Simulated scan of single mutants.
Amino acid sequence: MGETIETDAGGIWVERRGEGPDVLLIAGLSDPAEAWQAQLDGLADRYRLTAYDNRGTGRTPLPAGPLSVPGMADDAAAVLRALEIPAAHVVGFSGGSRIAQELALNHPRLVRSLVLVSTWARPDAYSHSMMGFWHWMAERAPNERAMLEAFLLWIYTPRAHNDGTVDRVIEETMAFPHPQSVEAFQRQLAPFRTHDTLDRLSEITAPTLVMAGELDIATPPRLGRAVAERIPGARFEVLPGEAHQPFQEVPDAFNARVATFWQEVQIRG
């Protein structure tokens, strides 16, 4: 059961599960903490996991004024400090991976290790146009279902579209009692569309694993590879046959891989 915690940045909704070394899960565009359910369930026997709703998502309110990626990273830092977590293994997905990059750059002592999933550092022309399309699609789609059906074409594998997984995700999203408004979606998307960390990634000192889906059309592997090449000592891995959201489509394999990485980090001290 989650709760709203008071931080220096205001109220933020968090979900916590398990016991052990601390893990912070940072979700991507529009995703509430529940996006990490398979990790909250599957890793809680070994780790203490914290997931939270980003600004304008789920139960964390949308503030006045524009959002920024560094500002959302400050929110992540505020969550860790409010929960008295001195340092955590940090996992960031998609837009959340941009937040995780800034967290590692601006609050390095809070980051024990870094896993960046479906990530990028500098938006290229394709990324810029894609996210521009998402911006106006959110307000011009005929209804919520049509918006989700279109948006999720970039997110899940053809396998998930054909086996009913995407239909189930759509039903669950539409039944979620804390839907994201069009305004919140667009305001959260805006900083992800333009934010650039490429020239600063060499400053990240945390052990880093970068994971990309072979079939990801939203953040193709070439973008993740560019991130890994800039972070000293980072590992880069492509997940065969997977797309943008592997931690949901193949959670057992994903959980096993990140747990192995964290164990290696702990052994190295």
Rank of each mutant, 00 (worst) to 15 (best):
P158S: 03
A234N: 10
D196S: 00
R159E: 13
A160C: 06
R145E: 15
T197W: 10
N143R: 14
R140N: 13
Q180C: 02
R187W: 04
F236I: 05
G164K: 02
E203D: 13
R200N: 10
H195G: 04
L209E: 07
A234D: 13
A234H: 09
A206P: 00
E242S: 03
F176C: 05
R187Y: 04
T194P: 04
T205A: 05
I204E: 01
Q188L: 13
T205M: 01
A184G: 11
Q188A: 09
T197E: 08
R225F: 03
M147H: 14
T157K: 04
L215I: 06
T194R: 02
E237C: 07
H244D: 08
L189P: 04
E149I: 13
Q180P: 01
L223M: 14
A212C: 07
H195L: 08
T165Q: 04
A150D: 12
P221F: 08
G233L: 15
V238F: 01
H195E: 11
D163V: 05
N162S: 03
A243I: 12
E237F: 03
E203N: 06
R235H: 13
A234I: 07
E214W: 01
F176I: 09
G164C: 03
I170M: 13
P221C: 01
A212K: 10
A150T: 14
R193C: 02
A190R: 14
E237Y: 06
A150P: 03
P207K: 12
E203I: 00
R222P: 00
V238P: 00
I231G: 03
A243Y: 13
L152A: 02
V166M: 12
E183Q: 00
T219C: 09
R225Y: 03
L239A: 12
T205S: 05
G213V: 10
S181E: 12
P158W: 00
D216R: 04
T194C: 01
R140W: 01
M211Q: 15
D167S: 11
R235Q: 15
L153H: 03
R159K: 09
A141T: 07
P191N: 10
P220Q: 03
F247E: 07
R193S: 12
T165Y: 13
Q180S: 06
I217E: 02
A150E: 14
Q188V: 04
A218M: 14
T219P: 01
A212H: 11
L239F: 15
M147A: 10
E171K: 11
M147N: 10
P177K: 06
G224Q: 15
P177C: 12
W154G: 02
H195S: 06
F185C: 09
T219K: 02
V210R: 08
P221N: 01
E242A: 03
F185G: 11
M147P: 01
Q186Y: 07
I155C: 05
L215Q: 11
E183L: 00
T194S: 08
A218G: 05
V166H: 14
E214Q: 05
M211P: 11
L215N: 04
E149C: 13
F176Y: 15
Q245R: 06
D216L: 07
V210I: 04
V169C: 11
Q245L: 12
F176V: 06
L148T: 02
E242V: 00
L239H: 09
R140V: 00
R225L: 15
V227Q: 07
N162T: 03
P221D: 04
R193F: 01
D163E: 08
